[in-house]
Simulated scan of single mutants.
Amino acid sequence: MMDWLSISPGEAPIIVSIPHAGTDVPEDVRSSLLSLELAQHDSDFFVDRLYAFASDFGATIIRTSMSRTVIDVNRDPSGQSLYPGQATTGLCPETGFDGASLYKSGMEPDGAEVARRRACFFDPYHEALSSQISRLRSVHSRIVLYDAHSILSQVPRLFEGELPQFNIGSFDGRSCAPSLTEGVASACSGHSTAVNGRFKGGWITRHYGDPENGVHAIQMELAMRGYLDETGPWPPVWDASRAARLQPVLRDVLSACLDFAKGAAQ
C-alpha cells in the first residue's frame, strides 16, 4: 500500500492528474536538504483541494502527496529538458524555481539515488496513470487526461512579467484535438488566458497525449493569485473566497472536457 499515491477511479471519460500538490518529504531525503521550507516552496499548493469537485463529474483523480523536490513525476525520466534553452527543473530538482540550491553542499542526489526515487515514486505514479487510461479507453472511444497545476504569478527566472490566470498547454496542438483546446479556452473567456505560451504541457501531457488513439491530454497551469494570497507569509493558506470565484470557471473547463470526450464537441 502506497499511502502517498491517491487513486480515485471514476466512470466518466476524464482523468484529472495532480502531480505537484504534494508537500511530503521522507526523512531520508529531508536530511540532505538545506531546509524543508525550501523543498516545499514550489509546490502547487491546494490544487487537489481546488479540483476536489471533479469527483462530482465522475472523473478519475490521481495525485501524489510527495513533494516535487523528492521527484518530479511531470519530467522526462531521460533527463531531456522540456523547454530547451529556458530555465526549468529536472527529475530530482537540485534548485528551486528561483535558482537557489535545495541541497546541502555535496549531498545532491547522485545517479543511484535518482534511480531509487524513480522506482519508488515516479514509476508507480505512471503505472497508475497508464492503468486508468487503459481502463477508461476500454469503455470510451476517447478520453481526456487533464493535468492540473498552479504556479506563482511572477517567477522572473522562468518567465517575464505576470502570468495570465489560465495557461493552457497542448504541446503546440500535438497532445489533443484542436476543438478540446478551443473548448477549454472558451470556458476561460473573460479572464486572462494563454494557449501554448510559456507552458505548453509537461511530460505527462506530451507522453500520454495520443489523439489518433483516443487519448487527448491537456495541461492547465493556473496563476496562484486566483485562489490564494501570494503576497502573504509562505507557505500560503487556503483562501476560500478567492477559490469560490475561481472554481465555477474550472467547473466550466471540466464540463468542456467532458462535452468533448462524449462527442458533444467535435
Rank of each mutant, 00 (worst) to 15 (best):
E162V: 08
D172H: 13
S179C: 12
L158E: 00
S189Q: 12
V184D: 12
N167H: 08
L180P: 10
G169K: 08
E162R: 12
A185L: 04
D210A: 12
I151F: 03
R157G: 07
P156G: 08
H149P: 09
H207T: 05
Q154D: 14
S192T: 15
Y146V: 06
N213L: 01
D172E: 15
A187S: 13
S192D: 12
G201K: 05
S150T: 08
E162Y: 01
G209K: 08
D210W: 01
S179V: 14
V184A: 12
S192R: 04
E162P: 02
Q154T: 15
K200C: 13
V184L: 14
A177C: 13
A185Q: 09
G201S: 01
S192K: 02
S186W: 04
E212W: 00
G169V: 06
R198M: 11
G183W: 08
V155N: 00
P178W: 12
P156A: 05
W203L: 06
S186K: 12
C188T: 06
H207F: 05
H149S: 09
S186N: 07
D147A: 06
C176W: 05
G197A: 11
G183F: 02
V184P: 09
D210M: 05
Y208A: 02
H207S: 10
P156E: 05
G209S: 06
A185P: 00
G197M: 10
T205V: 14
L158Y: 06
A177N: 14
Q154N: 14
G183A: 11
D172K: 10
I204F: 00
G190D: 10
G202K: 07
R206A: 14
S192I: 01
E162A: 07
G169C: 13
G161L: 10
R174M: 10
H207R: 12
G183R: 07
V195Y: 06
H207P: 03
T205D: 10
D210L: 12
G197V: 08
E212R: 08
Q154G: 07
G201L: 08
G173E: 07
V184N: 13
R157M: 14
R198L: 10
N196F: 09
V155L: 11
G202Y: 03
S192E: 10
V195C: 13
G183L: 04
S150R: 01
I168N: 08
Q165Y: 04
S153M: 02
G169D: 02
F171V: 13
Q165G: 03
L180M: 07
L180S: 04
G190Y: 04
G169F: 08
Q154A: 15
G169L: 08
R157D: 03
D210Q: 12
E162S: 13
L158H: 05
G201V: 00
S150F: 03
E160H: 11
F159T: 01
K200R: 15
G201E: 07
N213P: 02
G214M: 09
A194Q: 15
S189C: 02
S170N: 15
S150A: 01
R174A: 14
A148P: 04
S170G: 15
A177S: 15
P164R: 00
L158R: 04
G214L: 06
C176N: 08
Q165H: 06
G214R: 09
A194N: 13
G183P: 05
